[in-house]
Design a protein around this nucleic acid. Structure first.
Lengths: 347, 347
DNA sequence: GGTTAGCACTCATCAAAGGAGAGTGCTAAC
DNA sequence: GTTAGCACTCTCCTTTGATGAGTGCTAACC
């Protein structure tokens, strides 16, 4: 079952070649490769073995071989070399984030677009989900409505409209906000129910208001589809595997289903790196794609970004780009706090 | 130069047919149409005239004719009949908005998706831009930063992170917010500079803080690319005009350029309806598309939504869908305020 | 004079046929 | 174990011819 040294080498050469060209690779192509030193006939025999082992497949009798999903799995796990991103590219990337970057949203948007530009594939990103709250404040809108602003980190905040019972003044809302903030700050989602329970005893008569606040807090702490960014979907059409219209449309439709995509990414959340190949994505309708993801941290929140491409993906390149992006984003998010002297890590 | 009754009728029949089928229409097809009562030969003569007048073109000698951009212009301006949306579809549409709709964002998202579903084209939407402010509030985040929340309407609000000078307490921020709100509420962008001038005299020493707030207010009042929604881009691939990969990619890339799209929509902002056909869109890289837009109002803000499709677009249908959507959105946004009894119009 | 039937002509589209090229599998020799 | 050689397979491309839709023109018709 195990492959010997030579088979590994040949398989790697085949995959490398196929990733680069997208055309089935023949025995002669490999035998002519630098450092191979074997005739095409020998390669042919080895290829035949590899096919039997399930690593290669031939589209038809007299085409070359193409790697199977299994081969890509092996490639990613063992054969691939991941070089770090060239310095020039890395500095370019960094520069994109040092210009007038404002909000979290801007950073995510820029990162998503850059990811797609650098890889020539589609990129997806979900904003970090957060689990503790720093501050809650009610901002009056009309007599009977207020905006509930939740600050969950230096850079992340969300809002919902809340209905206010009659006869509650703006100043009362302010007091309430302060009280709530005091009790809630630093607590996690699971602790909220007790806090609310004790609070509503203290401040009885405001049940409906509390209930609303509780509900929206819970909603806000869950990562939602709205925090999903997708960039470079059109880039997929560049790759020959999507010259078939039906396939292309399928893929693009999947990418547009924000909920689905967000869930998919969430599944990989927290994993430092992860690579899902072809059939491993079958429940998402993207059977002939691969998804490479990395997670990044912002404060105590974890976000995930990924690159979607054909199974014949430049895994090595994509991984190095993602790794670089993770670093650059971290730096950007740290410096973005606007608090020189408070940065926890190196600049 | 003017066309007689019969030419109008024939041209209309040709355009209708071409819009429905996307294949060049021949003289026989038209002559067989109900209520035409002319032989193919006669139609042929008329078509020949129409071609000379620039309303028709033939892809090659023995294909039928296809309408020119000029013909579509004429069609939209004079020939087309816009029926209002069938009642069943309208009620379906309404139902989508009556379920648990929360924020403005949700409504926009739903509307954009529905628009694309109903028309089978791509839809775009920008959130209403606003010109007066109802309330400003600073919410402390850390020692040195605060979130500036601006409420500009019952449903619209934006936020930016602001840097706070040392030694300003949360309560001071609250006071400041109230003072600012008092002075600013109901004023428009152009009046802001004076207000700030007089305020900064009163509260000297807080120049940098004021400057920041001023800057972000101005930024917030401008509609930005971030408020753009696009839905159903993949739908374009369904239409035969985009079976050519290069063309399809061009279009999809354009759709991804949020800034460009937002600007394009802004150009049509305020117009009740507008239709831009083919070459009229040439500066956007979508020469062979058409864009139909309508504007909708939310409070004193005006938003714009549109549908992008091939020049061979079902203009009548699209217009009626957009009109219906405008109404439904208005209702949704009114009822969404959560203030029964305060609705300015019928429910 | 407008309308129509008839006919020659044009051109895209489709299917069939044949050649070229790439690649394989097998066999026999090294 | 490795390699050269060769027959064989199958896709891809081009050519060819048939089909059919549609036009433009002319001459006849009302």
């Amino acid at each position: 079952m195990d492959l010997d040294e030579r088979k590994y080498k040949i398989l790697q050469a085949i995959i490398d070649d196929y990733i680069a060209t997208a055309i089935p690779v023949g025995s002669r192509t490999i035998s002519r490769k630098e450092g191979m030193g074997l005739s095409s006939a020998t390669i042919r025999n080895e290829m035949s073995d590899l096919e039997e082992l399930g690593y290669l497949a031939s589209p038809h009798t007299s085409a070359g071989r193409i790697p199977s999903y299994r081969a890509y799995r092996l490639y990613v796990d063992q054969l691939m070399r991941v070089s770090s991103l060239p310095v020039t590219e890395y500095t370019n990337l960094k520069r994109m984030f040092t210009s007038r970057m404002g909000q979290m949203e801007d950073i995510l948007l820029t990162a998503t677009q850059a990811l797609s530009e650098l890889t020539e594939y589609t990129s997806v990103m979900i904003a970090p989900s957060v689990h503790t709250i720093k501050r809650v404040q009610l901002v009056p809108i009309t007599e009977n409505t207020a905006l509930m602003v939740t600050v969950t980190g230096e850079t992340i905040h969300k809002d919902t409209v809340i209905r206010i019972p009659d006869g509650v003044s703006p100043d009362q809302l302010y007091m309430l906000s302060n009280l709530l903030t005091q009790r809630i700050a630093g607590k996690s989602l699971s602790e909220l129910p007790e806090i609310f329970a004790s609070l509503s005893e203290e401040l009885s008569g405001q049940q409906s208001l509390f209930q609303q606040m509780m509900d929206s807090l819970q909603k806000q702490l869950k990562p939602d589809a709205r925090s999903l960014h997708v960039a470079g979907a059109a880039k997929m059409l560049k790759h020959p595997e999507y010259s078939d219209m039906g396939r292309a449309r399928n893929l693009l439709s999947s990418l547009e289903e924000q909920e689905k995509m967000a869930n998919l990414l969430m599944q990989h959340s927290g994993m430092e790196f992860s690579v899902a190949i072809g059939p491993e994505l079958s429940d998402t309708g993207m059977q002939d794609c691969s998804l490479v993801t990395v997670s990044y941290k912002v404060g105590d929140g974890i976000g995930t970004m990924g690159v979607i491409g054909p199974t014949r993906m430049q895994y090595g390149r994509v991984l190095s780009v993602l790794d670089a992006m993770k670093n650059v984003m971290n730096e950007a998010l740290l410096s973005q706090k606007g608090l020189p002297g408070e940065n926890e890590e190196q600049t």
